[in-house]
Amino acid sequence: MLGYIVRRLLSAGLVVTLTSMIVFALFFLGPDNPAQPLCDINGKCTPERLALLTEQLGLNDTVYHQYWIWLQGLFVGREISFGPIYQCSAPCLGISYSTRNEVTAELLDKFPATLSLAIGGSLIYLLVGVFLGTMAARVRGTLADRGLVTMSLIVSSIPYYVLAILAWIYLSLEWQIFPDTTYHPLTDGIGAWAYGLLLPWLVLGLAQSTAYARYTRGQMVETLGEDYIRTATAKGVAKRKVIFQHALRAAIVPVITIFGLDFAFLLAGTVVTEEIFDIDGIGQWGIRALRAPVDFPVVAATVLIGAVIIVIANIIVDILYSFIDPRVRVS
């Protein structure tokens, strides 16, 4: 098992390194001079200023050297100068062009909001989706089953942002059911935290749960046709237990794979949800950085953190797998 994890971590490290190289290459070898947006930020950009910034940022060095410097910053920190000299401590992801803060510090500042949103929302869609899917599979072919499938198709055919805006307009603004929808850190008290996030959680969770319901239903219908389900029934196991224990355990495995990836994408920033409910998380941060003038260090950081999260989520899913399915347990 340990060897397996080590092997997975090594390959994960490789993936992240490659991603960082690609990101680096894309931005720093792109058609524009990366110093250009920085130069544009404070009013007039003269050619002299651009040349100075280019020199200061080390953009005249070879790409390999730049990457090496960037990598060094990640592990031991470095000094960055454009105009003033900034101390960027390890792990250094650069200095934001717009706020002049350390990117790492900003990331750590935004991350809890996104994490809170992702955990709550994903729990809702996982639980609701799996439950509905299981129930639908149990009564498959009936009116209830068809109704659920139709409902879920309708919900998923409405664009998510429409759903979110409608929820915000009516539930929050108009009817004042959730008057205060924004992120409060946990340090403000768990009540405030949960209350502020309740509507985003529900909107995110219920919208996504339809896909999970359909997927779980499909898996369950397939599993319910397996021989071992017939065996369980034939030995007298109650129907409810057959479904929620014997069948669900087998059907849940592929659902978990999807869940792991979805969760990773949530963590990498749910732009729409954060924008609409005004949650200051990774998604908003990344979108802001993309607006001209582009805040290169922040964009690079969001892509990198996204890659890291997805890779980690994959590893966790694989480890979970081996706990659920003894056949993939590695000796």
Partner: peptide, 22 residues
């Protein structure tokens, strides 16, 4: 349910698929 497994039990063709793998 009271009959199944108690009065009447069943053995199936392929024991690999008839036993729960997990």
């Amino acid at each position: 349910r009271k009959l199944r497994g108690k009065e009447v039990a069943m053995i199936f063709q392929d024991p690999l698929t008839a036993l729960h793998p997990f």
